[in-house]
């Protein structure tokens, strides 16, 4: 698992720094705090799929705001992981419409295949399984999200293929970045 606590210095790549500059320009002068959510997404993708206190302090310094302003925001939104997660964070929707079309069976199936319960990470650190609330994909239920992508109309067979494919992914956030142009 990537632990930024052990990294000497938290610093964005030059590519990410250029993106940060462009993002901050989207808002009026003095309103750079508006860039906080985009920057947290970027930081999470850059630094191992979660936000360590060091990462959050770094984001605070970029935006010239207090660290507490970052912590209180990061802890409010569900997409920000404040603890390390596996290389592949699998999020299965469990709300009404997905439940009606078998989401619970899909969760149970993945739990069985990975040998973990919802909320847990496999011992090798490859997979974390979570359930989420409605992801706006109810017409193609059951569904799950990995990184920036949706996988829909799931069946056990599809899940088998996906898990096989994801066994070798090195870092889900790298995976996300490879598809990403801008956040």
């Amino acid at each position: 698992m990537n632990d930024t606590a052990s990294i000497e210095k938290v610093e964005f790549s030059s590519e990410a720094k250029a993106l940060v500059e462009r993002i901050i320009k989207r808002y009026p002068a003095g309103k750079q705090k508006s860039a906080l959510l985009p920057l947290l997404h970027l930081a999470q993708a850059e630094f191992g799929g979660w936000l360590s206190p060091q990462t959050m302090d770094y984001v605070a310094s970029i935006l010239s705001i207090k660290p507490i302003e970052v912590y209180e925001v990061a802890s409010f939104y569900t997409m920000f992981n404040l603890k390390p997660v596996g290389k592949c964070l699998i999020e299965v929707c469990r709300t009404g419409p997905c439940m009606l079309r078998g989401a619970e069976d899909i969760v149970a199936y993945i739990e069985k295949k990975l040998g973990i319960k919802e909320g847990e990470t496999t011992p090798d650190g490859q997979f974390t399984l979570k359930t989420t609330e409605c992801l706006g994909s109810c017409g193609t239920a059951p569904m799950l999200q990995l990184g920036a992508d949706y996988y829909e109309n799931l069946t056990e067979e599809k899940v088998d293929n996906l898990l096989e494919k994801w066994k070798t992914i090195q870092n889900h956030s790298t995976y996300m970045r490879s598809n990403r142009q801008e956040i």
Binding site: K33, P38, H41, L63, V73, Y77, T78, E133
Partner: peptide, 28 residues
């Protein structure tokens, strides 16, 4: 000028004033 702003995963940010708070970089 037109920009896209990402949320962070919070249903409440669909409520318009929570959305504006969020767009200002705060809790929703």
């Amino acid at each position: 000028n037109l920009y896209v702003q990402p949320g962070g995963g919070a249903y409440i940010c669909g409520e318009e004033t929570a959305l504006l708070e969020s767009l200002e970089g705060k809790r929703g």
